[in-house]
């Protein structure tokens, strides 16, 4: 791209392309082409599998790898126990999968594979993906809530200690804020990942265009942009972790609502 008139399209990185002539694959009338997005989901799953497999040596005195995996499971376990209580332990498999899947997807999408000609794809920058994850979390909240409390689950919309005349006002507001949860959950991750990647791409276009425009522009625009890019890359690594954490944390908070009401 850079060779031909240094045209950098910051949105191109989000383009989905079917791989290996799979664009015509269909299941029950729906297209299920194996795209680059699906490819990176596969890579994420495989890398995560290998990572956790390394923690399965079950030694009494753990090695570094085992320690690392146990740190992550312990982290999720503690988070669920802090937010939900003892009942939170049964959600560890789901929240761990969610957290690690998003974390690995974010980090793998940041790999500088462009250097060797590959194109990393961050599928968490697509709201179709984050939306599905958010809907799964929200569905679990609804299922657990109605399973455990039945229709009493609706008392969630009446915060404890609300004066009786306020209930008709408060309840709709609570209901709306409850229904907004899956959207905020999915959009937050999607927006954060997309914004970071667009920012990096825009800065890289500054570097390329500035340098192509001459040494003066290169020093004036390209170099500061490049230095800024390095900083933003570190920030993006942080954001990758934080967004995965936020997704898992909010999921556990919502599950807490379903488990314990208020």
């Amino acid at each position: 791209m850079a060779a031909e008139q240094a045209k950098v399209d910051p949105m191109y990185q989000f383009t989905i392309e079917p791989l290996g002539g799979s664009e015509a694959w269909e299941l029950a009338g729906y297209n299920i082409a194996f795209t680059n997005s699906a490819m990176w989901m596969l890579i994420t799953t495989v890398v995560l599998f290998i990572f956790v497999l390394g923690g399965m040596r079950r030694q009494l005195v753990p090695g570094r790898w085992q320690m690392m995996v146990e740190t992550f499971t312990g982290f999720i376990d503690n988070m669920l126990e802090a937010n939900i209580g003892k009942a939170g332990r049964k959600y560890v498999p789901y929240v761990f999968s969610l957290f690690m899947f998003i974390l690995f997807a974010n980090l793998l999408g940041l790999l500088p594979l462009g250097v060797i000609g590959l194109h990393p794809f961050t599928f968490t920058s697509h709201f179709t993906v984050t939306g599905v994850l958010a809907i799964i979390s929200f569905s679990i909240v609804l299922l657990v809530g109605f399973w455990k409390h039945g229709l009493h689950f609706f008392s969630l919309f009446v915060p404890h200690g609300t004066p009786l005349p306020m209930i008709p006002v408060i309840a709709p507001i609570e209901f709306i804020s409850f229904m907004v949860r899956p959207f905020s959950l999915g959009l937050r991750l999607f927006v954060a990942m997309m914004a970071g990647h667009v920012l990096l791409e825009v800065l890289s276009s500054f570097v390329i265009d500035g340098t192509n425009a001459g040494a003066g522009f290169g020093l004036l625009v390209g170099l500061p942009s490049f230095i800024l890019m390095i900083g933003i890359c570190a920030l993006e690594l942080l954001v990758a972790g934080i967004q995965a954490y936020v997704f898992a944390l909010l999921t556990s908070l919502y599950i807490n609502d379903a488990e314990n009401l208020h």
């Binding site: 989905i16 082409a33 596969l42 999968s97 994850l133």
Partner: peptide
């Protein structure tokens, strides 16, 4: 064009992960 494939493969791979 892509939502069905995105949802399908996500369910497949997240399902495997889970």
């Amino acid at each position: 064009d892509t939502w069905s494939s995105q949802v399908f493969w996500l369910l497949v791979f997240f399902g495997i992960t889970f």
